[in-house]
Design a protein around this nucleic acid. Structure first.
Ligand SMILES: [Mn+2]
Ligand SMILES: [Mn+2]
Ligand SMILES: [Mn+2]
Ligand SMILES: [Mn+2]
Lengths: 170, 170
DNA sequence: TCGGCAATATAGCCGTTGCTAACTTGATGA
DNA sequence: TCATCAAGTTAGCAACGGCTATATTGCCGA
């Protein structure tokens, strides 16, 4: 596993990189070929989830701000996200592009119907993730921290399993 | 929550954006000011975890490939990550920059001591996350998928809690 | 009313992570 | 031996998400 320790491949097991045009039917998964393990989709999936994460957090937070303060200002959004104001403005531009928010320049930011629905969904999921973490023994403060990243990778089916788990253990 | 529904802020509760130079001591958390809630660190933390995610996945996978095939080739890395070869090459360049891997051009990729240690740590964490998900009722296939993203946001303390949970419930 | 200032927007930089197209290299087999 | 061609690299593009510096706007109080 170190550069000075060149690997000793077992030549009998998995001859690497000798394209063997013999009996291979092209769509049969080959145990000796990395593609055969089908791990790639996992990473693609995780990347897609991550691409949504920023939108989800902004939308949830804008919903919170409107609820708590009556409006969502760029300065407040930026402060809560821990970014500079132009960064928040740029993110809001993306929210608008994706139909999740609207904004009147130099005024507040508002959620569309779609955005508001996403905010609610994300808020529920966030709370459920925290509760599951607490239920398995994570201190609540820490659960709150870790959940902020974890939540975006919890699929709806996994979320359903979480809810069952919490219900059934009262 | 919609643009046509301008918020009705409770003016008595939290007068927004009137900088009130009165009795405020500057470092006292203000309940009416979003910064006072101290949520920003959470997101900063999640962003930092995410910045590590790519490195962690590559390092783990390179370790797997060396173990399984005796060597880690760019083509195999790219295939398993579900990206194009130049994307893998670029990621490997970052691994080298960060002291996690070395590579002989046109030959294989190798892990440094640091990289190998990270690979082991990440592999253990990945398995633990999957086992916790399974333990709370997530089907194993799905647990494997979701864990690929979740793992990177599980802090070492949360991981310790996960391990205790798994131990204590046999 | 209107000048000043705080909030917001814009411009432009950087690094990361994808991609495709084109070039280089080196291993293989005839 | 050496031509071929798969594997790898390089070049260059785009989108995203940070940032700072600067321009703009609109709100409030004098
Ligand atoms: Mn989050
Ligand atoms: Mn959240
Ligand atoms: Mn992962
Ligand atoms: Mn993993």
């Amino acid at each position: 596993m170190s550069p000075s320790d060149p690997p000793a491949p077992d030549p009998a097991a998995c001859p690497p990189h000798k394209p063997d045009p013999r009996i291979q039917q092209p769509d049969a998964p080959d145990a000796c070929t990395p593609e055969g393990t089908g791990h790639a989709d996992r990473f693609t999936r995780a990347r897609e989830a991550q691409a949504q994460a920023l939108l989800e957090d902004y939308v949830e937070m804008i919903g919170d701000l409107i609820e708590q303060l009556g409006e969502a200002r760029v300065a407040d959004i930026a402060a809560r996200m821990g970014v500079a104001q132009p960064t928040a403005t740029k993110a809001i531009a993306r929210l608008k592009r994706e139909g999740l928010a609207t904004a009147r320049p130099y005024r507040g930011v508002f959620l569309t119907e779609t955005g508001a629905r996403m905010a609610d969904r994300v808020r529920v999921r966030h709370r459920t993730v925290v509760e599951v973490l607490v239920a398995v023994g994570v201190p609540r403060d820490l659960a709150e921290l870790d959940a902020e990243g974890i939540e975006h990778h919890v699929s709806s089916q996994t979320l359903a399993a979480f809810q069952s788990y919490l219900d059934q253990r009262g």
